[in-house]
Simulated scan of single mutants.
Amino acid sequence: MTVGSDLAIDFGSATTRVADSRGTMLFEQPTVAAVDGDTGRLLGIGEKALAVGLATAGRVRLVRPVRHGQLVDIALAEEVLGEVVRSSGVSRLSHPRVLACVHVGATHVQRRALDRALRRVGAREVRFVEQPVACAVGMGLAIEEPAGVMVVDVGAGMTDVAVLALGGMVTATSLAVGGDDADDAVRLSIARRFGLVVDSATATEVRRRIGSVVAALDRPRLEVRGRDAATGEPTVAVLSAAEVAPVLEDLVRPILAAAVQCIATAPPDLANDLLRSCVHLCGEGSLLDGLDARLADATGLVVRAAAEPGHSAVLGAARCLMHLDSMRSSVTSTSRR
């Protein structure tokens, strides 16, 4: 990478992605760190962290520095971001400009923490773009036009909903609900119903294979392996889609309500524009089976899913880097509140 190259960063609750201004993906790995349980030393990030955690069970803590879109351990986040930038092939000495994705309503304190972390790993300038704007640009939507467009971005830890026009957000909201919450709810449901303890990877597999928020009668039952909560012995349970659906419904309901409310609070002319357009659905959490159909029923609008739902934000931020002059109203720094 050449000195002075710009970076787009989506430091997500589940996955961290980095792209350059040409849209080339430089880094895409889980947002997790392996930390020595005795010394607190960072042993690895991403896939390496997961491998270290499996190989040294009990001596290493696996820590997620981002939860529901917020830095929960700022010192660790700085270390992780340093490794992310290094793994992206960027030297601290190159001092890149960085455009970081943030959620709707991210506070000045949250932005300030991310700004400080990125500057400490070598960024000469840090700016922010809110998720719906980045996603819209990443999906190729003409947000600079006066006609309204709508984005629903369901991430791992947060959901952002916005109606956009004239280069920015007109109405927007965010919820601390995402795919990770679905996995947590699945794990809890399995524990309560079967007395079976499963790990997060198993819960994710259950959600992806038989999880649905529409009728899924044709889905086969899924054999799930874990350990008995009482004895610790390995055991097996068999789950159906009908048993998983209720816990997912509880999480989807507020997302649908937020989308409806966002339309209701939009100016009438922009709300009418949406009747001739559609709702654009993106984010890794949007892959939940039936979410697009439920969103269409709730809003009365056509719903179109992104081709690369997890990449929309970071690729949109990368495109914004190419057009910073024309995106000034949507791209901010910590000096602007």
Rank of each mutant, 00 (worst) to 15 (best):
R207S: 10
E205N: 14
V213Y: 08
F194G: 03
S200P: 00
V186C: 10
V186H: 05
V214Y: 00
V213F: 06
R192Q: 05
D184N: 10
A185V: 03
R193K: 12
V213P: 12
A185N: 09
R192H: 01
V214E: 12
I210E: 02
R209T: 14
L196M: 14
E205H: 14
A203R: 11
F194H: 15
A182Q: 11
S200H: 11
R192L: 08
R192P: 03
G211H: 07
D183C: 03
V197L: 12
R207Q: 10
G211T: 04
A191W: 13
A201L: 01
S200K: 08
D199G: 07
F194L: 12
T204N: 07
S200A: 11
G195I: 11
R207G: 07
T202F: 00
A201S: 06
I190A: 03
D199M: 02
A201R: 08
A182M: 12
D199F: 01
G211L: 03
L188V: 11
D184W: 08
G195K: 08
F194V: 08
R187F: 12
F194Q: 13
G211Q: 05
R187N: 09
S212M: 06
S200G: 01
F194D: 13
V186E: 09
S189D: 05
R208H: 01
D184M: 05
R208G: 02
D183P: 04
D199P: 07
V198E: 04
V214N: 09
R192T: 02
T204P: 02
E205W: 09
L196I: 15
R209I: 10
I190C: 04
L196S: 15
A201Q: 04
T204E: 14
L196C: 15
V206P: 03
D183Q: 03
V213D: 06
A201P: 00
R208Q: 11
I210M: 04
V198Q: 01
A182C: 09
A201G: 03
V206A: 06
R193A: 15
S212I: 02
A201N: 05
V213W: 06
R207V: 07
S189G: 04
S212Q: 03
L188D: 14
A203F: 05
R192M: 02
G195R: 04
V213E: 04
V214H: 01
